[in-house]
Design a protein around this nucleic acid. Sequence first.
DNA 1: CGTTGTGAAGGTCTTCACAGCC
DNA 2: GGCTGTGAAGACCTTCACAACG
Lengths: 204, 204
Amino acid sequence: MSRLPVYLRCLVDLPDGQVTCSSDQLAAIAGVNSAQVRKDLSYLGTHGVRGVGYTITELRAQLRLALGLNKGYSVAIVGAGNLGSALGTYPGFDAWGFRVVAIFDLDPTKVGMKIGDQEVLAITELERAVRRQAVDIGIVAVPAGAAQDVADQLVAAGVRSILNFAPTVLHTPEWVETRRMDVSTELQILTYHLQLGSEAATDM
Amino acid sequence: MSRLPVYLRCLVDLPDGQVTCSSDQLAAIAGVNSAQVRKDLSYLGTHGVRGVGYTITELRAQLRLALGLNKGYSVAIVGAGNLGSALGTYPGFDAWGFRVVAIFDLDPTKVGMKIGDQEVLAITELERAVRRQAVDIGIVAVPAGAAQDVADQLVAAGVRSILNFAPTVLHTPEWVETRRMDVSTELQILTYHLQLGSEAATDM
DNA sequence: CGTTGTGAAGGTCTTCACAGCC
DNA sequence: GGCTGTGAAGACCTTCACAACG
């Protein structure tokens, strides 16, 4: 469920002194309905206390468990351009147990470059390195034209989760979970709404 | 509707010779159901031809119009770190009529730096510059702690669309459309599914 | 009294299935 | 024959509303 990470982050951001949190409060911070919060949390087999709320530490632990954040995960980044570099040095991974264990690029002039604590490897090394490091999650940060090929290689190397930054739809076997993060798409959704707004204004 | 940008991109990527496209083909490329495609397109008042499909050029034009891509949009980026820099030089904006007209940062050592064709401005300039340039879309690429403050400033300067890369939920007036793009959240959704998969395996 | 947990109602989004048309 | 457009069915998700409880 895609709201759980949001709840977890909200709970982590709560002031230190606070011990319990009501569904109302969490809902307000997370920007959702409070019945929604309770329903979501009831899936985790939580035990909130009526009249009081949820114990923050307990709830955090349960969310971490549900999201599988009790284990660590190995992440490989493919593409060492601007985006790949930004991701490779992103400080927010550690906190949730994500470790970048490899970065690949096709461009020979980039191979050997240092990004964070990783040296960029040639893309020809991908399958071997990904297999050896038992990579859990592959991040595709290459141009659209190369994305499907990279995804195929990741899948062939045993990766079962892919985060795709390329502006293209990846086709993967059904046992591979793929998510897309595409700036242009998001911007276009925003303009769609801007557009709707101005149409409505014209109607008057 | 969030699938329209995907359709549009798929259509643009189609081989040059092809004149028409069936809902089946578009569905296959975009990774959705074909009835879905037809329903989505019927909203645009399209006129596909039975037995043939949709005329690609016509459909592209209709999608562009529906998404409001016939006008150009001014974009401001707040935050000139790794991410802000990557976005400021992202070549994919132009094609859809997005123009980065300003980049801001709090850090005085970054002010004056050149990113793409823009000089980084002090964040104190934000409201004035955003207003003068009639910015349509603000991109928040600052640390979580600063994000709400930046969003408030963007809203105060008249921005009605925000794309938020900070790992936090922004609270904005209801006339402001906000979308979140957060790598950690996406990774956590992936681990949630990995987790479910391994639980199911344990059950056997 | 305040808040949870949840059945039931209400929405929305997706898919099916097929008539209608080229 | 092949494909669109769409009513109807179905699946899923969200919200309401309130009994149950500390």
